[in-house]
Design a binder for these strands. Structure first.
Lengths: 207, 207
DNA sequence: TAGGTAATGTGATATTTATCACAATATACT
DNA sequence: AGTATATTGTGATAAATATCACATTACCTA
């Protein structure tokens, strides 16, 4: 069992619960969450069951408690420092990405060879790539976002792995060589776009 | 059948084939592609079989032909114009995203309310949102990338849909209300990151 | 406090997706 | 030409995932 889908859904549930909590809603139900995010209520309950989340047989779920449980399961019950590799346009976008600000994920530093010629004042410290090992020795960060050119992706990955980073988002389009105990989530934007194109073709392929 | 996974894989195959072609490789095999992208050869052949792609029983596949077939299936056998909504950091990153340059997807214009105060010369024309209907009347683009703040995502979506756009990538974190004949691919970067965090937790939840 | 009901929780079932095993066949070799 | 072999192509099987049906239970009302 790899749980990829389950984990994705838990994350969606968490986001929904966060919004409910922001709106000061105190109790909710599987049906409510369902209409919120478009996942069948029975699927939601099954997922909760699988991960040991219990509600109240008639009162549904307490929003704050459920949110807390989901965060615990996802490992989001504490601040997660993340480093960013590559401070180009994508890197800049990520440092300002509103999705991260609500959660407990925080980009603490970026590394980019162009550090000397940055035009504007970055919102996080940006260091030259040479200082990666030293930084990681002082700040044992476990997660990294790879927003670097394809040519250097594997080399940067290896260096980060050497220095203890184990979880990665990879925005480059090379398929990295990854040791057993690391986890890489590839986000290929072209691929995402091509999926859209396939599903909006006038004439789908008959299968 | 929804084929989401199949289509994603086809897209990966296409990318691999493109690289093989760039390196002037003439023939290839399921096994080769497999080691390239880490998908079992038998899965690859099954996918090909499902979409009617045939190889040569001993010579494998002709790279150029296979690439062409994959492009046909994915609807990538012609230039695909795409518009970009929101020319913030993410928008800028996307216009320069190297993944798109190889393929046939081309971002032809962006729309952003801050169009008047752009610092540098953008590589594509940037128009105010008010001109969306007129633009789409003159340029019947079918695909859009939503890189706008959550608050306006649904409104922008509705306007685009009204004007004929049917395929979307949505980078905002709201779950859009989508008519039957449109397709939205939600790319939630926080969710992607949370997946990574889950899989790199020291103590996984026992299930 | 007893009955009605809205919700959960989960075993059973169906569907989807991936893997396996091997038959078929095109090429290479002798 | 005939045999060996690499590789495809696919039915059968297994595994994963989602849905259904309904038993259970906590709350509400009278």
């Amino acid at each position: 069992m790899h749980f990829k889908n389950h984990v994705t859904r838990l994350s969606q549930y968490k986001a929904a619960l966060q919004r409910l909590d922001n709106n000061n809603v105190e109790r909710t139900h599987a049906e409510t969450i369902s209409t919120y995010i478009g996942i069948p209520a029975t699927q939601i309950r099954k997922d909760f069951s699988l991960f040991g989340i219990r509600g109240n047989k008639r009162g549904g779920y307490n929003v704050k408690d459920l949110l807390e449980e989901l965060k615990n399961i996802l490992g989001l019950n504490r601040d997660i420092p993340v480093i960013l590799l590559g401070y180009g346009n994508l890197g800049k976008a990520l440092t300002r990405y509103q999705g991260f600000h609500e959660g407990c994920v925080r980009i603490v530093a970026a590394f980019d060879p162009g550090v000397g010629v940055l035009s504007s004042q970055p919102p996080i410290p940006v260091y030259p790539p040479a200082s990666i090992p030293k930084f990681l020795k002082n700040n044992p960060v476990k997660h990294a976002i790879l927003a670097v050119p394809n040519e250097v992706a594997q080399a940067i990955f290896d260096e980060l792995y050497e220095n203890g980073v184990r979880g990665f988002i990879n925005f480059s389009t090379v398929s990295l060589n990854v040791p057993e105990d690391a986890y890489v989530n590839n986000v290929d934007l072209e691929l995402e776009l091509e999926t859209v194109i396939y599903y909006t073709k006038e004439s789908k392929n008959k299968v």
